[in-house]
Computed example of a mutant assay.
Amino acid sequence: MFTITIEKECGCFKKSDFENNRNFENKDDALIEAKNMVKVMNDEWCQKHEFIFSEDGQNFQIAVNERTKAHSGCCGGGHCS
């Protein structure tokens, strides 16, 4: 049995159709689903958090971190200030 676990269920997760502690019989199916979840969570959700995938044997963990502040768009060339 392979399990996808979300470390912390943020508001966006609770509103989604995703399920925490979801079990799969097949490792490939669990891996595909976990990577798909992380992509959706990082690309389509509110951008307050960053979601990071890791694998430990039969467990797939999705960690939740606060996003660092968005960069200003400045390239650092000194002409923006």
Rank of each mutant, 00 (worst) to 15 (best):
M1D: 06
M1K: 09
M1S: 10
F2Q: 03
T3C: 10
T3R: 15
I4W: 07
I4D: 06
T5I: 14
I6C: 11
I6K: 06
E7Y: 05
E7D: 11
E7K: 12
E7H: 08
K8A: 01
E9H: 03
E9F: 01
C10N: 13
C10T: 15
G11M: 05
G11I: 04
G11C: 03
G11Q: 09
G11N: 12
C12K: 05
C12W: 07
C12P: 01
F13D: 02
F13L: 14
K14R: 15
K14V: 12
K14T: 12
K15I: 01
F18G: 00
E19K: 15
E19V: 15
N20T: 02
N20G: 02
N21L: 03
N21M: 02
N21A: 04
N21P: 00
R22N: 01
R22Y: 02
R22V: 14
R22Q: 09
N23Q: 08
N23D: 04
N23I: 05
N23K: 12
E25G: 01
E25I: 06
E25T: 06
E25P: 00
N26M: 00
N26W: 00
N26E: 01
K27M: 06
K27Q: 10
D28K: 13
D28T: 10
D28G: 00
L31S: 07
L31E: 11
L31M: 09
L31G: 02
I32P: 00
I32R: 07
E33V: 07
A34F: 01
K35M: 03
K35W: 01
N36R: 11
N36V: 00
N36E: 05
M37H: 00
M37F: 05
V38P: 01
K39R: 12
K39N: 07
V40W: 08
N42A: 03
E44Y: 12
W45M: 12
C46V: 09
C46P: 06
C46E: 09
Q47I: 03
K48V: 13
K48P: 00
K48D: 09
E50L: 10
E50D: 11
E50C: 07
E50P: 01
F51Q: 04
F51S: 03
F51M: 04
F51K: 05
I52N: 06
I52M: 05
S54Y: 05
S54C: 03
E55F: 10
E55G: 08
D56H: 11
G57V: 09
G57P: 11
G57Q: 08
Q58P: 06
Q58T: 14
N59F: 15
N59S: 13
N59Y: 13
F60I: 15
Q61E: 07
I62C: 08
A63N: 13
A63F: 12
E66P: 05
E66Q: 11
T68P: 08
T68Y: 10
T68M: 14
K69E: 14
K69G: 06
A70L: 11
A70K: 15
A70R: 14
S72N: 09
S72W: 07
G73K: 12
G73A: 12
C74I: 09
G76K: 12
G76T: 11
G76W: 10
G76F: 10
G77M: 12
G77H: 11
G78M: 15
H79T: 10
H79M: 13
C80L: 07
C80I: 09
S81Q: 13
S81K: 14
